[in-house]
Amino acid sequence: MSKNTIIFIGAAIGWFAILMQFVLMMQNRVESLTETTLRFFSYFTILTNSLVALYFSVLWYKKPISFLTRFEKPGFLTAVTLYIAIVGVVYQLVLRGIWEPTGMHRIVDEMLHSIIPIYVIVFWFNYEDKRNVSWKLIPIWLLYPLFYLAFILFRGNYSGYYPYPFVNVTELGLKKVLLNSGALVFAFLVLAFVLVGVGKSLKFKTPNKTTLDS
Rank of each mutant, 00 (worst) to 15 (best):
T36A: 12
T102Y: 03
Y61F: 15
I86M: 13
L137E: 07
L191K: 04
P117G: 04
I152M: 08
L137H: 04
Q92T: 10
W141Q: 01
V87K: 01
I13D: 04
W135P: 01
T170I: 15
E31P: 01
N132S: 01
V94A: 14
L38Y: 13
I7D: 03
A12K: 07
R39G: 13
F40T: 11
K205C: 02
A183Q: 07
I84L: 02
H113K: 01
A79H: 04
F125M: 12
N208K: 12
Y55R: 03
S201V: 09
L172Y: 02
T45W: 08
W15Q: 09
L184G: 10
G10D: 10
L149V: 02
Y91L: 02
K130P: 00
W141T: 04
I118S: 10
L178D: 13
F41C: 11
P74V: 08
Y144D: 09
L95S: 11
T78Y: 09
M26T: 00
L93V: 07
T36F: 04
I138A: 07
Y162Q: 06
N4L: 10
I115S: 12
L179N: 15
V89P: 06
P145H: 10
E171D: 03
V185K: 04
V90N: 11
Y148A: 05
I65Y: 13
E128S: 11
F154G: 15
L195I: 03
I107Y: 06
W135N: 07
G10S: 13
G14A: 02
I46E: 08
P207G: 14
L68K: 02
P165M: 06
F41K: 05
I84E: 00
Y61N: 10
Y127S: 12
K209W: 09
D109W: 03
L212I: 11
S2V: 14
D109M: 00
G75T: 04
D129W: 00
Q27V: 14
P139Q: 00
K200Q: 13
